[in-house]
Computed example of a mutant assay.
Amino acid sequence: MPMVTVSISPLQAADIRAAVDNGTYASSSEVVREALRMWEAARKLGGCPEGAFDQSGVSRGGKCVADMFADHEAENRHTV
């Protein structure tokens, strides 16, 4: 599998570690792959328009991948 290096915030890194530590995901890579699948699905559905976030990463409104990911996490907590 190709390797890609990305920079994330300390909070994002902590959230990924927490998802692995609590057993929701088997690895950090699994968390990121899930997020990318959701991002791709949102793009295909038109749910994540270009310019949805400002330069600091703050949402300009509407539901996008971060919201979808949070919803997915909440659903998993209820079904597991």
Rank of each mutant, 00 (worst) to 15 (best):
A13C: 00
A13N: 05
A14Y: 03
A14T: 10
D15F: 07
D15V: 07
R17Y: 06
R17A: 15
R17K: 15
R17N: 13
R17L: 12
R17C: 08
A18V: 07
A18Y: 09
A18Q: 14
A19P: 02
A19T: 09
A19D: 14
A19C: 09
V20F: 03
D21V: 05
D21I: 05
D21A: 13
N22G: 03
G23P: 07
T24K: 11
A26T: 14
A26W: 05
S27R: 06
S28Y: 04
S28T: 09
S29D: 11
S29V: 05
S29P: 02
S29W: 06
E30Q: 15
E30T: 09
V31H: 02
V31E: 01
V32T: 09
E34K: 13
E34P: 06
E34L: 13
A35Y: 14
A35S: 12
R37D: 14
R37N: 12
M38P: 07
M38W: 07
M38F: 06
W39F: 14
W39C: 15
A41L: 08
A41V: 10
A41W: 12
A42G: 08
A42P: 09
A42F: 07
K44M: 15
K44F: 14
L45W: 11
L45V: 09
L45K: 15
G46F: 09
G46N: 11
G46L: 09
G47L: 15
C48K: 09
C48H: 15
C48I: 08
P49K: 11
E50A: 13
E50C: 06
E50S: 10
G51S: 04
G51V: 02
A52G: 05
A52K: 06
F53S: 05
F53Q: 10
F53I: 04
F53L: 14
D54A: 06
D54I: 00
D54T: 03
D54N: 06
D54M: 02
D54Y: 00
Q55V: 02
Q55P: 01
Q55M: 00
S56L: 00
S56W: 05
V58A: 11
V58H: 12
V58E: 11
V58W: 11
S59D: 04
S59P: 08
S59Q: 04
S59T: 10
G61C: 03
G62R: 00
